[in-house]
């Protein structure tokens, strides 16, 4: 197994695990974290994709850089909204997930 394939497989595995986490978690912080890990898995796959004999393909790198920036922004906004919701409503879950406390 070559190095890129190891990276790509790890990326896929992270993506699947985190997607499972996103779908099952109810606490919004956990869901935000899960999405971040999904993002990392996606970026890892992209980096693996860039591996070429010489020189490495620059485009996936550019995409990952952009993707990280976007991801940081979205995460920051999500955390800010979560804090607001917690302050207003006393819960870190979405209204439909609050039945069990």
């Amino acid at each position: 197994m070559t190095t890129p394939i190891v990276y790509a497989s790890a990326g896929v595995a992270m993506l699947c695990i985190a997607l499972f986490g996103f779908l099952t978690a109810r606490h919004v912080l956990r869901r935000i974290l899960a999405l971040n890990i999904v993002g990392s898995g996606v970026f890892m796959m992209l980096v693996a994709l860039a591996a070429r004999p010489d020189p490495p393909d620059p485009i996936p790198h550019a995409l990952v850089m952009t993707g990280i920036v976007v991801g940081v922004c979205v995460t920051a906004l999500a955390l800010a909204l979560l804090r607001r919701m917690f302050a207003d409503e006393g819960s870190a879950r979405l209204p439909e997930d609050r039945e069990f406390g």
């Binding site: 993506l15 996103f22 919004v28 869901r31 935000i32 999405l35 999904v38 993002g39 996606v42 796959m45 993707g67 979205v74 906004l77 999500a78 909204l81 979560l82 607001r84 919701m85 207003d88 409503e89 979405l94 209204p95």
Partner: peptide, 20 residues
């Protein structure tokens, strides 16, 4: 606020599916 948060989670998940 909670509606916005729900929209955000969904939009983010959708974007990640798209980027894959």
């Amino acid at each position: 606020i909670s509606a916005a948060l729900r929209y955000l989670l969904l939009a983010l998940a959708g974007s990640l599916l798209y980027i894959v």
